[in-house]
Nucleic acid binder design. Structure first.
Length: 110
DNA sequence: AGAATGACAGGAA
DNA sequence: GTTCCTGCCATTC
């Protein structure tokens, strides 16, 4: 039995978590793309809020900003951690930004 | 109730 | 190509 959502946002949070888990290994998606996959286009900031609050196990490191940049400050521990995980999955990073040259992934971004 | 904040995005300079 | 400013939405003070 699913728990009763205390608010509409928590219902979306579930969808957001699923959308993030659906990201293939070695691929990255923008917050807007995740929001869109979750059925709430335009709520990119809501995705960020959910990631910051949820205690669910999700590949949060695969979610980056629209320009491919990491969402954390460069001096943050999270910043390094995210890069480490991405590189571990074969994601190529260029000057602190994610390089997306995969033809198939490029389509998924649209 | 009003103002400030945040793991963002898009357009302009 | 990068940097800065504004807009959006939900939560928090």
């Amino acid at each position: 039995m699913a728990a009763l959502p205390a608010s509409a946002s928590e219902l979306h949070a579930s969808q957001i978590c699923l959308a993030i888990r659906a990201i293939p290994r070695g691929a990255t998606r923008s917050y807007a793309a995740v929001a869109r996959a979750a059925g709430i286009p335009g709520r990119a900031r809501l995705v960020a809020r959910v990631l910051a609050r949820t205690d669910q196990i999700v590949p949060w490191h695969r979610v980056v900003r629209a320009d491919g940049r990491i969402a954390f400050p460069t001096d943050s521990a999270h910043f390094v951690e995210q890069i480490e995980k991405l590189r571990s999955e074969g994601v190529v990073l260029k000057n602190g930004k994610v390089v997306r040259s995969n033809s198939l992934d490029a389509r998924l971004w649209g």
